[in-house]
Design a protein around this nucleic acid. Structure first.
Lengths: 216, 216
DNA sequence: TCGCCCCTGTTGACAGTGTCAACATGGATC
DNA sequence: GATCCATGTTGACACTGTCAACAGGGGCGA
């Protein structure tokens, strides 16, 4: 899956080879910032070959990060899909999100970090799009919960929906950002698991209507 | 305040000179990762002088980040202090937090980024301590709100308090992290201001008890 | 007072980086 | 069959973080 060898098959092969090599390198090197030349080495090409496929180091990293967001989207989609209602779906989504970040911390750090930016600080459209698509899973879930009355979200008020999405999505990003550190000093993930459940409960509860939801 | 010139006054002078120089450099260079040598140049010393005061580049950056957290703490403390109750205090704290991040995005990016880490990925005790102290302002505020019944927090349950603190703090970090990007493409900060208010309201509302708080 | 040592700073070197320029090459196209 | 372009290579450049060796000078014990 993550083995990288020189381009052999069809068009654009080196491009994906480089992305895979970078991802593999990222996964194994704990928090080290990976170098373009090392990626090229890993892919079995010269140190300048990447420049035929990416303008920048940042553009290569952005492609890796975009792939990460695609995987994140699949992960949370799958988690939320199996839930009986939106509240449990949200809980599952939160758990899947945190697990995804734990699974490959370097990748997650890359996804939200600034190595991925253009020199002017902007994000590439592909990366932004991939991130938006991942966030859309949460949006759909919240809207579903709003419609069924499980969440106190006015689904006809775009601002209200957006604010709810941003609030939850921000919490997830911030939570993983902050707690991945703490995990490093803990022996087991158990404490983190409990805290995650607690935070998830707070988030879900915070979204619940003041009055009792539809009974039953 | 941020002007840096060669060490002239008492002990440890170059140390603080370097920190100030780095902070100033960080403030003016938009999102560029600052180099140790440039900091030294800015401080008017040779490129190796910093190594007499910091083991690493990371250790210097950690000191800058710690100073940032100290400022953040002061900022949110002041904002929360003037509020009549905990709910308004929390709203003010949120606004101050976001404003702080907006005020110097590079500094904030440094504070939460990974340039600040030791080679093994850990954080220095000073930095962790400064971050904890800043978070403690929020903690005190939430406990106050819990005691007065404004927030549904069981102040005798350490886990409950922690989860509430982590939830809000995470949301703040994640929100600024995500929205600072969006701001770049917007003409004015007005839209962000509205969204921030909306998110703040959701956070505060989410903390409110299900039953009406103590009347009056 | 002399001599030594350590603290702080300097100079110089080294491997490694991102990126640019110039060159090779081989397959598609006219 | 000649030509061109996409893709790759080699070589160079400025710059980086860090190490080693050296300089000076102020404090301190003899």
């Amino acid at each position: 899956m993550s083995e990288a060898h020189p381009a052999t098959s069809g068009t654009e092969s080196l491009r994906t080879t480089l992305i895979d090599a970078a991802a593999a390198l990222l996964a194994q090197s704990e928090a080290a910032s990976l170098s373009l030349r090392e990626v090229a080495r890993r892919a079995g090409v010269s140190h300048n070959a990447p420049y035929r496929h990416f303008r920048d180091k940042a553009e290569l990293l952005a492609a890796v990060a975009a792939a990460g967001y695609d995987r994140l989207r699949l992960t949370v989609e799958r988690a939320a899909a199996g839930a009986p209602d939106a509240a449990e779906g949200l809980t599952a989504l939160i758990g899947a999100f945190v697990a995804f970040a734990l699974e490959d911390r370097s990748r997650y750090a890359l996804m939200i970090g600034k190595d991925v930016r253009n020199p002017d600080g902007s994000l590439s459209p592909e990366l932004r799009g991939a991130a938006d698509r991942a966030r859309h899973v949460l949006r759909d879930l919240l809207i579903r919960g709003g419609r069924s009355g499980i969440f106190s979200i006015d689904v006809d008020d775009e601002d209200d929906v957006s604010a709810a999405v941003v609030t939850v999505w921000s919490t997830l990003h911030g939570y993983t950002l902050l707690e991945l550190d703490r995990l490093r000093q803990l022996e087991t993930t158990l404490e983190i698991d409990q805290l995650t459940k607690h935070v998830a409960m707070r988030l879900v509860t915070g979204l619940r209507p003041r009055r009792a939801p539809v009974s039953g």
